[in-house]
Computed example of a mutant assay.
Amino acid sequence: MSEQPRSRRQTRAAILGQLLQSGGMFRPPLAKAVRLSEASLSRILFDLKAEGLVEEIRRPVPYFGGPSALVSLDRSVALGAIEIAGQWLSVGIGALSGELQETKRLALPEHPTVQSVGRVFHEALTVLRDWTRRRHVKLVQIGISVPGLGRLSVSGNAIIPCDIARIRAMLSEMFRDVPAEFTNSVVAHATFHRCRMEGYPFSGAHLFVFVGQGVAGAWMDDTIATDGAQVVELGHMVFGDGGPLCRCGHHGCVEAYASLPALAALLGVPEPDLHELRNDWVTTVPLSSQVRQELRLRLFRLGLAIGNTLNVKPSRAIAISGWPSLLPPEDRTSLLQGIDSSLLGGLDAAALAVAFVPPSTGHDPRAALAFAACCLASRGGMPAEATEAA
């Protein structure tokens, strides 16, 4: 069967997506990756360079007579990023290539409401607007990451109460011509890992599991399109009555056992201190045999939830990000045993690849920045109003 022809927007999106994931490519392998002749690629790159989206930098040739100009995303393109993580809302300006240039953290209220969260968003957008004016830059995309987004109605989010329509109205007032996209935190972190972290294990379709302030998953497509990921709230599977209270209002959710707040309570470390330690907690916080045994039980429950998810929708690969990846293999085995115990047919290493990737929490708003870059790349760098017509 012959390949369906691509629109101009889709072809540009394929090129920008490859550059976003690779960090830069020489023309011959780039042309091969996006299935274009070098002549066709050259014509499109001419347009992308004229629009200030890509640049070519001279590098030592990879082999005698080989190319010397590396194609990469232009570092002068400015993106806005807003990310809610824990008790903070982080706002920043960054480059299309991933570097953050300005960041600020704003505290969320202890007991957030739609009104109080809306006020924090307004403050963040004011900060973002002031930065753009001081730097004399125009944002081309804003990415916004919100925990639990899409689980219920946009204004009835059980995790973070916020009215998306109200926030969009603020965006329209302060950034009238700048496209802005919202996403669930797990999608933002999956995008960050896939596009910004070296050595990410999978490029095709797979399940990404995020264990951080909450526990969730995202079905990742084999492209970086912003609509290619579907959120699955596996953290809210309930393991019987009488379990710990989850922030969703139920008792005994896997999130109530395996999230960072649950981990902090188990370790006897205040949650802010655990965030401050970042990845070092695994070497600085002593684990008694009793605590380690409970930790493994919680990892087993997390594995059960992942296995049950795969029973509903099979996958050939899973990437697991978060604090479990910091533990030694003998502890992580409990998670694999949980998958094996619930997955139909059991865990077959030949049929299901499982990889642990480093935590991405504590780096906000880098995940939202990666999502903003993905949004821009997905529409081929074209104006938002030109997307459907392209």
Results as ranks from 00 to 15, higher is better:
Arg75Trp: 03
Pro28Ser: 05
Ile44Met: 06
Gly86Leu: 11
Pro28Tyr: 08
Arg58Leu: 12
Ile93Glu: 09
Leu89Thr: 10
Ser37Asn: 02
Phe26Ile: 08
Gln10Ile: 03
Arg58Ala: 15
Phe64Leu: 14
Ile82Asn: 05
Gln4Ala: 15
Ile15Lys: 00
Asp74Val: 01
Lys49Met: 11
Leu20Asn: 03
Leu79His: 06
Thr11Phe: 01
Tyr63Asn: 05
Leu70His: 12
Ala78Trp: 06
Leu53Gly: 06
Tyr63Val: 11
Gly66Asn: 11
Thr11Pro: 00
Ile82Ala: 04
Leu89Val: 04
Arg9Pro: 01
Met25Leu: 15
Phe64Met: 10
Phe46His: 13
Arg12Met: 08
Leu53Val: 05
Ala69Val: 05
Arg8Trp: 06
Arg35Ser: 13
Leu36Ser: 03
Gly65Arg: 10
Gly80Lys: 13
Leu30Ala: 09
Glu55Thr: 15
Pro29Gln: 08
Val71Trp: 02
Leu48Thr: 01
Gln21Tyr: 00
Trp88Gln: 14
Leu41Gln: 07
Ala50Thr: 08
Ser68Val: 12
Glu3Val: 09
Pro28Asp: 09
Asp74Cys: 15
Leu70Val: 04
Lys49Thr: 13
Ile57His: 07
Arg43Gln: 14
Ala14Pro: 00
Asp74Ala: 15
Arg6Tyr: 05
Glu56Pro: 00
Val91Phe: 01
Tyr63Lys: 11
Glu55Tyr: 00
Arg9Phe: 01
Val54Met: 07
Pro29Cys: 10
Leu30Gln: 06
